[in-house]
Simulated scan of single mutants.
Amino acid sequence: MRFAVSRWTRTVVLLALVASVAGCGLPRSGPNKRELYSSSVQQEGNAFVVTVDNHVARAASAVPPLGFTNGFLGAGVIGSDEIRPGDVLGLTIWENVDNGLLAGPGMNSTALQEVQVDGEGYIFVPYAGRIRAAGNTPEALRRIITNKLDAQTPDPQVSVNRIAGDGATVSVMGGVGGQGVYPIERPTRTLSAMIARAGGVVIEPEIAQVVVTRGSHSGRIWLKDLYSNPSLDVALRPGDVILVEKDQRFFTAIGATGAQNRVLFETQTLSAIEAIAQVGGLSTNLADPTGVFVLRNETPEIANEILGRTDLVTTQRIAYVLDLTEPNGIFNARDFMIRDEDTVYVTEAPYVQWQKTLAAISGAATSANSLSNAANN
């Protein structure tokens, strides 16, 4: 009788534990492939699920290139001798008389050092008055001052020189050898020359980007494109801000991968295969290689092309599916480019859940036996 009760107790406890495991659900890293397909728009869900083939890989990999607008590209190189507000000038005036307007006794020349061009572009010269200097070359300003003084002193001679000032400068910041404010001079009138003047780039060139801000406008390019495409070596303007920084793009890897993390791009272009390799590849014990998903908010233009539609006008959620068990699937993964803020999700293989279920049942049976033995004792 005691044996029958003990056996009945073990059975009840085992069934209770198995039911408890089934009701609570087993731990896992996320939805499986079947669940993702069932949540597609085709199944009245809210995301399109698209299998990646050659056409999809090409269309979905279109990435808007970095570059400058026509306002930057069309700007001509400024004259290195053009006077601007903030510049500092040195003036020397010779007079052809013994007692001149400006010269002291026994002297026939007057030096006016460090004459700063004011914010409106003017300077003041005694007996010549307030004269507009900005926009003129030193030679043009020399003629203007000469004409102003000619009516008051015979045959005046004037010399105008530019001294270091803050009128035509740019700011260089970020990953360069020497951050600071630099004057636009004849050798440094273009973007690449100014970066070189600031000590060059000190971050990895492959992922270095250059941002130029001019007033309310800005443009961004790759450093390597700057040196390979002369048209991107734009002319600088006073007040420009140049920032050299690392590529800030990232993707998120989750699921059955070697590492689950937010990952920065290490190259200008990053394929799905490279992204998986960057996080340690697929987990050999967990991953379903037929269920590698790239989750993306896709532009309506690309979504229409991929889905063969013309009616989509807003951003669409698309889950791209890669099958790495076929040779062509691996090629497609190599050609499919990851974009900024993509999510790479690798589903678990179906047998993994069976293993977890069997392990849970086995654990439950062990627990039942332990409880039964305890009850018998």
Results as ranks from 00 to 15, higher is better:
A235Q: 01
A235H: 03
L236P: 03
L236D: 10
R237K: 14
G239E: 10
D240Y: 08
D240F: 05
I242T: 03
I242K: 00
L243F: 10
V244Q: 01
E245G: 01
E245L: 00
D247S: 08
Q248Y: 04
Q248R: 04
F250A: 10
F251Y: 12
T252H: 01
A253R: 03
A253K: 04
A253N: 02
A253I: 04
A253C: 01
G255D: 00
G255C: 03
G255K: 07
G255Q: 02
A256T: 07
T257C: 06
G258C: 15
A259H: 15
Q260I: 12
N261W: 11
R262S: 11
R262K: 15
R262W: 05
R262Q: 10
V263N: 07
L264S: 14
F265T: 10
E266G: 15
E266L: 04
E266T: 14
Q268W: 15
Q268L: 12
Q268M: 13
T269C: 10
T269Y: 14
S271P: 14
S271Y: 13
S271L: 09
A272C: 05
I273K: 01
A275R: 04
A275P: 12
I276V: 10
I276E: 01
A277E: 07
V279S: 08
V279H: 12
G280F: 15
G281M: 08
L282E: 06
L282I: 12
L282F: 11
L282D: 09
S283G: 08
N285K: 08
A287S: 06
D288H: 01
D288V: 02
P289E: 07
T290Q: 13
G291R: 05
G291V: 03
F293N: 00
V294L: 02
L295H: 00
L295V: 05
L295R: 01
R296N: 05
R296K: 02
E298M: 11
T299K: 08
T299W: 07
E301D: 14
E301G: 08
A303V: 10
E305T: 13
E305P: 05
E305F: 07
E305L: 10
I306Q: 06
